[in-house]
């Protein structure tokens, strides 16, 4: 980890909510008194193509705001994985949905295939909670913030009325990582 920074890159297809997931992680980091810099790709790709969001989390102030050497990659679609896997350094953690197959370039990374999309559907009945399932898994895996902080961060960013379903998604995500 360069400068003690976690450099997270979250990818999927537009509409899967990876931007919101990265915002929630950044929100939780701020709550936990950490420094963070969150940004995302904009433009046509955010409307249905491959979508990328980034979040740097650090105990020290962050100078450059963009991810240069990801310490973590999330990919929810094969297209996103194929696009963003090159450049992932040795030793980085990569979480992919179980339905995807990891490309050769990730052979020196720590790749975990988790049933993120399936869990969202099975545990909450709503595919759109996959991003919150991912948030739960990522936070548990990388030990970014406490369970309370991540819960609060999720509640700050989900629409009124969807709190309980998103809490269920968060728990289900946490349970994917033991």
């Amino acid at each position: 980890m360069k400068n003690g920074q976690m450099q997270l890159r979250l990818t999927g297809s537009g509409g899967q909510g990876v931007i919101l997931a990265s915002v929630i992680l950044a929100e939780a980091a701020v709550m936990a008194d950490k420094y963070t810099a969150q940004s995302q790709s904009y433009g046509p790709e955010a409307r249905g193509g491959s979508c990328k969001a980034e979040c740097i989390i650090s105990d020290a102030p962050i100078a450059f705001t963009k991810v240069t050497v990801p310490t973590f990659l999330l990919a929810l679609t094969q297209k996103a994985l194929d696009t963003y896997a090159p450049g992932i350094p040795e030793g980085a953690t990569v979480v992919i949905d179980e339905s995807l197959s990891a490309p050769e370039c990730l052979k020196n990374a720590r790749v975990l295939a988790l049933p993120i999309l399936r869990t969202a559907k099975e545990k909450t009945g709503k595919a759109f909670t996959a991003n919150i399932v991912a948030v739960g898994a990522i936070n548990r895996l990388l030990k970014i913030v406490s369970a309370e902080a991540i819960e609060k961060a999720v509640l700050m960013h989900v629409p009124a009325g969807s709190e309980s379903i998103n809490m269920a998604a968060l728990r289900a995500g946490e349970e994917l990582v033991s």
């Binding site: 950490k34 963070t36 810099a37 969150q38 962050i62 705001t65």
Partner: peptide, 10 residues
């Protein structure tokens, strides 16, 4: 610039 306009920080 776009970098700062779209950046989120605490």
């Amino acid at each position: 610039d776009e970098i700062i306009g779209h950046l989120r920080e605490g």
